[in-house]
């Protein structure tokens, strides 16, 4: 398999498991990336725009965790 090729799963069980695993990986990556951005001083609107979701959605999903972790959150856009 060359680097340019993405394998195509032929078994539906493999394909469905790949979907579940990718969602899990994406969720983990989102948690890590949002935290990194907020620690670097980004504001919610910019993080939301980067993710292509609403500010309310990103706040609802991450605020509680980041506040509990002691991350200083910017109220205004940064």
């Amino acid at each position: 398999m060359s680097d340019a090729e993405v394998p195509v799963p032929t078994d539906p069980a493999d394909a469905l498991a790949a979907v579940a695993a990718l969602r899990r990986l994406a969720d983990r990556l989102e948690d890590a990336a949002v935290e990194q951005a907020m620690r670097a001083g980004w504001g919610w609107p910019r993080v939301a725009e980067a993710l292509g979701v609403t500010r309310q959605a990103v706040y609802k999903k991450h605020a509680q965790r980041l506040i509990a972790a002691g991350v200083k959150l910017r109220r205004r856009e940064g």
């Binding site: 090729e5 394909a15 890590a32 509990a68």
Partner: peptide, 19 residues
């Protein structure tokens, strides 16, 4: 399951997110 679609779980080295 990730490898099935050519993805590695160790594909990023961001710090582990808070719980």
């Amino acid at each position: 399951s990730l490898n099935v679609v050519g993805v590695s779980a160790a594909g990023h080295d961001l710090p582990r997110p808070s719980r």
